[in-house]
């Protein structure tokens, strides 16, 4: 009896395992295994020819060399600013798509946000370079308009990096915002007005609390993308953009110091995790809720 009952159970268990296997294989081969390897690399030091000893030297190196942690803090800070700016710019757009535009108009607006993403990030960023470089479109226009006497170099500034980062992040903020704003009952907004609230109070007391999971989800996605971005800071900020991913690239490819690169990679992982946790704490949201609802 017990065997008869157990047999179909284990059959179902096998089926479940089989269905899960692609995801598990993906997780194991592409996430766990490389990171385990990187962990090993980062926590050892070369003591002689093909001879390695466990050591924290790579991590110590990070804290001893001001340029490293300076870049690290700068990357984090600029990513936070870019996330916040993206949120501020994306919110009105999401509001129009979710609440003001109707039917086809809303679909077209959404499509308009999506179209740039049919082009690769590299090409899109090169587009910005064509617009902003000294011999580019925008400086020429500025000269024509008499705003500046000579063409100015608009590339390789922090602001340029910021513009590129925000541009690349917009869609990932708009999507979760639209879905959370669409679920907001218009009657709640009207009820708040009816009870004497003004636009700002409605935003603060009704709209933002309702959209909080979408806002948090959008911010997490955009922050992660920005922090880990390589192409945009490098192309728009130039060789000395001071982005931490570039630092990692340099360690791995230019200096061939895989140990140091791996340590940096882990530090970036820890940093992004800590900032996301802090963000969730600050906004009073839970990760499961946020990802489940968007």
């Amino acid at each position: 009896m017990a065997d008869a009952a157990a047999a179909p159970m284990s059959g179902a268990g096998w089926r479940k395992a089989l269905l899960m296997s692609p995801a598990l294989a993906w997780l194991a081969l592409l996430i766990v295994l490389p990171h385990a390897e990187l962990a090993v690399l980062s926590f050892r030091e070369q003591a002689g020819l093909r001879h390695y000893v466990p050591s924290l030297s790579h991590y110590r190196e990070f804290f001893h060399e001001p340029e490293y942690w300076h870049t690290f803090v700068r990357t984090a800070w600029m990513s936070i600013v870019a996330t916040f700016a993206t949120l501020c710019l994306a919110f009105p757009i999401a509001w129009v798509i979710a609440k003001i535009a109707r039917g086809r108009a809303a679909a077209w607006l959404f499509l308009a946000c999506m179209i740039p993403f049919w082009i690769s990030e590299t090409v899109r960023t090169l587009g910005w370079m064509i617009l902003l470089r000294e011999t580019g479109v925008l400086p020429a226009v500025l000269v024509k308009l008499g705003i500046v006497a000579h063409p100015v170099e608009l590339l390789y500034h922090d602001t340029t990096i910021m513009v590129g980062l925000i541009y690349n992040s917009m869609l990932f903020m708009i999507v979760p915002l639209v879905s959370s704003l669409e679920s907001l009952d218009n009657a709640l907004i009207e009820a708040a007005y009816d009870l004497g609230a003004n636009g700002l109070t409605v935003l603060r007391k009704i709209v933002i609390p309702h959209a909080a999971p979408g806002i948090t989800a959008g911010c997490i996605i955009v922050f992660m993308l920005t922090l880990g971005d390589y192409i945009t800071p490098t192309l728009l900020g130039g060789k000395d953009s001071g982005w931490f991913t570039e630092q990692i690239y340099t360690e791995f490819i230019t200096r061939f110091d895989w140990g140091q690169g791996a340590a940096f990679g882990f530090l970036l992982l820890v940093l992004s995790t800590l900032i996301v946790i802090a963000g969730l704490k600050l906004s009073g949201q839970r990760f499961g809720d946020v990802m489940g609802r968007t």
Binding site: D185, A187, L188, E190, A191, A192, D194, L195, K205, I206, P209, H210
Partner: peptide
């Protein structure tokens, strides 16, 4: 003037 809405529109938050 105040209004009681059809679906009441109480603030769930």
């Amino acid at each position: 003037v105040n209004m009681v809405f059809q679906q009441l529109a109480l603030f769930p938050m």
